[in-house]
Nucleic acid binder design. Structure first.
Lengths: 242, 242
DNA sequence: GGAAGCGTTTGATTTTGATCAAATCACCGG
DNA sequence: CCGGTGATTTGATCAAAATCAAACGCTTCC
């Protein structure tokens, strides 16, 4: 399905240079020299993706890579009969794409309204051959995603529903509101249905666990999406991470 | 705990050169020039690991990397209360180790009697800086492991017990007996307890599903470990992979 | 205002897999 | 051969989460 975006370039005076990427986060830009950065900037475009926009489908070829500038992207796998599993969440400033293999093993979809900075495979491939540090950076990102995937396998295989929901909230808190580590406050980037697909549960079970955590004062819900965690240590304990 | 091995070198005349690796599989050796290969061979040692031997513990530093020459290594994560999840299986000729990060996020243990060909971090790091193809090879391996981990997340999160056991048998068949694709015959590298830890089930449930698959003629069990699959297509279907 | 639609919550019931318990099997050493 | 030990299977019961069903709350749009 490709990228169903609207190109900000044409609708505003935001310069093509990937300045926002450079300033706000350490995506691929961080490994590049000033000249390379300006080259990448010239060849990259900024896009806004509305929540729900598919970036790439499962098994599709991925002709463009992206840095996530703002927002959350979910990676999903679907079975033939429709059962679905979210296998990863990518937060800014994560890189979206993989070297060597153009075929994407997962579908990527904007979970929230998202901004990305994207460029073609060829552009990045060229930069990588000239800049070993960039290859190393992408290698490190792959290893980080591998660690995250394996952490989540433990959650999926061995934790109770309550521990799963606590683990999810913990993950979001750490990634969205990392400043404060004793307390946290954030907007959930996923609907209850998505959370269920991430945790291998049903919507109803997720909802019941939210209610339970609320009644036990582990979390406070301003509305369905806005969460406050008064005691992160307690949440960590309930998540089974000691 | 380090490697509890017995060094074959001292007990036999097997040469130090990693000739077996080169001949039998495409581990890291495949990316090296003849000179580099002979250098790596000089610096590497071959070891036999009895089933159950721990190669590296969760969170430990990994000072040596290895190619798996023969056998199966399981990667596990453990929770504080003892709950355990196998997060990956490595078959020959997989590489065991990771660049950049010496700290292992998982414990690695020989599931079967295993032979590895191992060398120090420093040796490989040097080779990688001189040989970009080698870095690429390791990057590809990381991406392959990531794909496998995410595939398994779907299994853990969304499949029934029967589908899980069928998925496990399918995985083993593909990796141990890859020649024949309509039929398969192999020895299970894992005990029922390990299979349970891989699938996020209990021993009893795994056993019941084996019995069920046997009664439905999906598999035949010569003994607890030896399995024959008369119809791989059927197994694939039961695993939920269409 | 009110009807429609969607996401979420709550309730009643069922199902799957876990737990508890015991029997069986396979292998090993005396 | 026999008793012992650990792995596996089988059986009975229980509990957690799924399923089925309905209500609720919120937004949108006549």
């Amino acid at each position: 399905m490709g990228i169903l975006h609207r190109d900000i370039r044409s609708s505003s005076d935001v310069p093509l240079v990937c300045r926002a990427c450079e300033a706000r986060h350490g995506g691929v830009c961080a490994a590049l020299s000033p000249e390379q950065l300006s080259e990448l900037s010239r060849r990259s475009t900024r896009h806004r993706l509305d929540a729900g926009t598919e970036v790439v489908g499962q098994g599709e070829s991925m002709e463009r890579y992206s840095n996530i500038v703002r927002g959350v992207v979910k990676l999903t796998k679907v079975m033939a009969d429709g059962r679905q599993q979210i296998v990863g969440l990518q937060f800014a400033p994560d890189f979206l794409g993989r070297l060597f293999l153009s075929e994407s093993a997962v579908a990527a979809e904007a979970a929230t309204d998202t901004e990305i900075c994207s460029f073609s495979r060829g552009t990045l491939d060229q930069l990588v051959t000239r800049t070993p540090e960039l290859g190393e950076k992408l290698h490190r990102q792959a290893l980080k995603e591998l660690d995250e995937a394996r952490d989540w396998m433990l959650t999926l295989g061995r934790k109770s529903a309550q521990e799963k929901v606590a683990s999810f909230l913990h993950l979001i808190a750490v990634n969205i509101d990392p400043e404060n580590d004793s307390t946290a406050s954030f907007d959930l980037p996923l609907s209850r249905a998505d959370i269920a697909d991430f945790l291998g549960l049903t919507i109803e079970t997720v909802s019941r666990q939210f209610t339970r955590l609320r009644k036990e004062n582990v979390i406070r819900l301003v509305n369905n999406r806005q969460v406050t965690v008064p005691d992160m240590a307690l949440l960590t304990r309930l998540a089974g991470n000691d």
